[in-house]
Design a protein around this nucleic acid. Sequence first.
DNA 1: TTATATGCGCTTTAATGTAACAAACGCCCT
DNA 2: AGGGCGTTTGTTACATTAAAGCGCATATAA
Lengths: 151, 151
Amino acid sequence: MPILARMIQKSVQSFEKYCDEHNLRITPPRLSAFKIIHSATKPMTAYEVLEEMAQDIKSPKPPTAYRAIDFLLENGFIHRIESLNAYIPCEEKHKHDGSQFMICKICKHVDEIHLCTLPATLQNRIDSEKFTLDHWNVEIHGICAKCNAKK
Amino acid sequence: MPILARMIQKSVQSFEKYCDEHNLRITPPRLSAFKIIHSATKPMTAYEVLEEMAQDIKSPKPPTAYRAIDFLLENGFIHRIESLNAYIPCEEKHKHDGSQFMICKICKHVDEIHLCTLPATLQNRIDSEKFTLDHWNVEIHGICAKCNAKK
DNA sequence: TTATATGCGCTTTAATGTAACAAACGCCCT
DNA sequence: AGGGCGTTTGTTACATTAAAGCGCATATAA
C-alpha cells in the first residue's frame, strides 16, 4: 500500500475512534470531507472539497460541503485558514482554543505551530482589558525554508 | 463642531500629510473610503463602504470600493479583519508588519493591540524553521469588558 | 507638449457562503 | 417490531464578497 494511503487510513481510524468515544456520527459527507482534507498536500477551499466529494457522493451541493466542514471544525479535526478561506488537517489529538500557522506565500504550504497558551504579551493585554478569551488565531505569512533554499 | 467630526477631521489631516510626504495620490474614492472607515464605530465590510460612498460619489460600483480599500490597506491606513471580512482604521502612525485584534463576539467591537514584535514563542519557532517573516496577524475572539459587565 | 503611468468607471463574472424546507435516517423507548 | 423525536441530508434558491477586462481620464515627468 502506498505510504500516503496508509497515513490517511490511520487518520481515519483515529477519527472513527474519537467519534465513537464522543458519540459523534460519522456520515458519508463527513467521512468524505475528512479524507479529502487530510490527504491534500495544500489547504483546500470549500469548493475544492465539494468538487472532490463528487467521487464519493452523487452531485453534492455547497451546503453539503459546508456542513461537513463545520462538523470537522467544531470537533477539531481541521482548521480554517482565514486569510486563504481554506482548510487544513489538525494533527493534534486534543482540542485547543488557539491555532497558529506559518503560511508560505510561494508554495502555499501551511505549517501548524502548536502553542497551548496565548503568548504572555497578548495575555497581559487581554487581562488588563478584562477581555474574556474564547479562541485565538495567528497567521504568519512569509517564506518557508524550502522556498528560501531554492532562490 | 461635534467631537466625532473633529476627530475625523484630524485623521484626514494626518492622512493628507502622509500622502503628501510619500507621493501618494488622494482621490475622491480614496478619501471617501478613508472617512467612512475612520468614522465608523464597527468594522465595515467592503459593500458597506461601497454603500456609504454613494454620499460622496455618484453610484459607485464594487471595483471603486475595492480599489480604494486596497490603497488604504497597502499604505497602512486600515486593517482587514480576516475573520469578519471587514475593515477597521489603523490609528498607528507607522507601518507595522504585525497586527493584533481583540474581537468581541457580542458587540462586534474590535480593539487593536499594538505589539511591534512577534511574541518570543512564535519568533523562536519561525527562527528554528528558517521561515522568513513577511507579516503576521492575530485575531483574538471573546467578550469585551463592557459586554462582560452587562451580563 | 508629448509620453507614460496611474487611477477611474463600468460591465461582467467568479468565488464564497447561507436560508429555508422537506425528506430520510439513527436512536431510544416502549 | 413499531412509534416518536431530534439530527442529518438533499435541494433550490439566493446573498455576499471579490476580481477581471477594457477604454477613458488625469496627473506627472521628460
